[in-house]
Simulated assay, not measured.
Amino acid sequence: MVVAAVVVLGALSWFVVVLLPGWTAGGDVARLPPAERLTAVGAVRTQWITWTSVITGLGVGAYGVYRFYLDKDKQRLDQDKHLTGLFDSATGRLESDDPTVRAGGLRTLFRLMTDSPRDHQPVVDTLCDVLRQRAADSAAGRLPRDVVAAADALRDRPDRPEIRPVDLAGVRLPGVRWPGIRLPHADLGSVCLDGADLTGAVLTGADLADADLGKAKLAGVTAAGATLKNAVLTGADLSSANLRDADLTRARLQGATVPGADFTGADLTDADLRGVDLRTTTGLTGASLERAVVDGDTVLPVAAR
C-alpha cells in the first residue's frame, strides 16, 4: 500500500509539474520568445503547485479529523466494553457467600460510579438492593462488611442528579455512620437507624414514618417537609435541626435534645414532648403545642407560654 501511494503521488506530481502547466497556458505560449514562454509556464506551474498543495493539505486535514473521530469512537466503545465488564464482574461477586468478597465487589461499583456518571443511577439502585436484602435483618452490633461497604458507598456517592429517590424502606442499619448523607425524598419508612450518625444529613421531604431513630445523632439535619409520623426519636440529638413543615404526628421525642431546632409549621399532633427542653427552639406556638403531649418537665419556649 505504501509503494502504491508513492507511485500515485509521483505520477500526480509529474502531471502537475510537467504536463498540466503547458496545457493550461494554452497554444499562444508557443509563439512567445523562449524566456517569456519559460516565465509563463513557470507562473502557471507555481499556481497549480500552490492549489495542489492546498487541496492536498485539506485532504490530509479532513482525513486526520476522520481518523480522530474514528479513534475516539473506538476508544469510547473500548471504554464501554471495559465498564460493562467491570459492572458485570462486580455484581457477580455480590452472589458470593463470603461477605469480604461481596464488600470488594461493592467497592468496585463505587469506583465505577465515581468514574462514570452514566453508571451512577444503576449503581445507586444496586446499593439500595443490597442494603434492602442484606441489612433488613441486621441485628444490633457490628454490621457485616458488605453492608458497611454498601452504606459507605451510598453516603460518599458523587453529588449528581438522580432520576428517582433512594428506597431503603424497612432496612436495619443500627449505628451506621452517615454524616452528611443526601437522602432527599427518600423512602425510609420503618427503617431502624437507632444510634446512627446522621449529623448534617439532607432528608428534605423524606418518608421516615415509623422509623426508629432513637439516640441517633441528627444535629444540623435538614428534614424540612419530611414525614416523621410515629417515628421514634427518644434520646436523639436534634440540635439545630431544620424541621420546618415536618409531620411529627405521634412522634416520640422523650429525652431528645433540640436546642436551636426549627419547628416552624411542623405538625406536632400527639407528638410526645414530655421532659423536652424547648426553650431555644424556634417556630413553636401555643397552638402547635396544644396538640402535643407535654408534662410538667417539658420546658416551653417563652413565646409559647
Rank of each mutant, 00 (worst) to 15 (best):
V6Q: 11
A11D: 10
L12V: 15
W14D: 15
V17S: 14
V18T: 13
L20T: 12
G22Q: 06
G22W: 06
A25Y: 03
D28H: 11
D28Q: 11
V29Y: 04
A30C: 06
P34S: 13
P34V: 12
E36N: 05
E36V: 15
R37A: 14
L38S: 15
V41P: 00
Q47R: 15
W48C: 07
I49G: 06
T50A: 15
T56W: 15
G59A: 07
G59I: 01
G59D: 02
V60W: 04
Y63K: 01
Y66R: 11
Y66L: 09
L70H: 06
D71K: 01
D73S: 03
D73N: 08
D73H: 05
K74R: 09
K74F: 02
R76G: 00
Q79D: 08
Q79G: 02
D80G: 05
L83I: 10
L83Y: 10
D88R: 09
D88I: 11
S89I: 04
L94H: 01
E95Q: 15
S96D: 14
R102P: 00
A103W: 01
A103R: 00
L106M: 08
L109C: 10
R111F: 07
T114V: 12
T114I: 05
D115E: 10
P117T: 12
H120I: 07
P122H: 14
P122A: 14
V124H: 00
V124K: 00
T126M: 13
V130K: 11
L131T: 10
R142M: 11
P144A: 14
R145T: 15
V147A: 11
A149L: 12
A150W: 03
A150L: 03
R155N: 09
R157L: 08
E162T: 11
R164C: 14
P165C: 12
D167R: 13
G170Q: 10
P174M: 07
P174I: 06
V176G: 05
V176A: 14
R177E: 13
W178L: 15
H185C: 01
D187M: 03
G189F: 02
V191G: 04
D194W: 12
D194F: 10
D194V: 07
G200R: 00
L203Y: 06
G205E: 01
L208Y: 00
L208H: 00
D210H: 14
D212Y: 03
L213V: 04
A216G: 11
A216N: 04
K217M: 13
V221W: 03
T222N: 10
A226Q: 02
R244C: 05
A246G: 06
L248V: 11
R250E: 13
R252K: 14
T257M: 04
G260K: 07
D267Q: 02
D270F: 08
D272G: 12
D272N: 14
R274C: 12
D277H: 09
T280R: 09
G283K: 00
G283V: 00
S288D: 03
V293C: 10
T298V: 07
P301G: 10
V302S: 09
V302I: 07
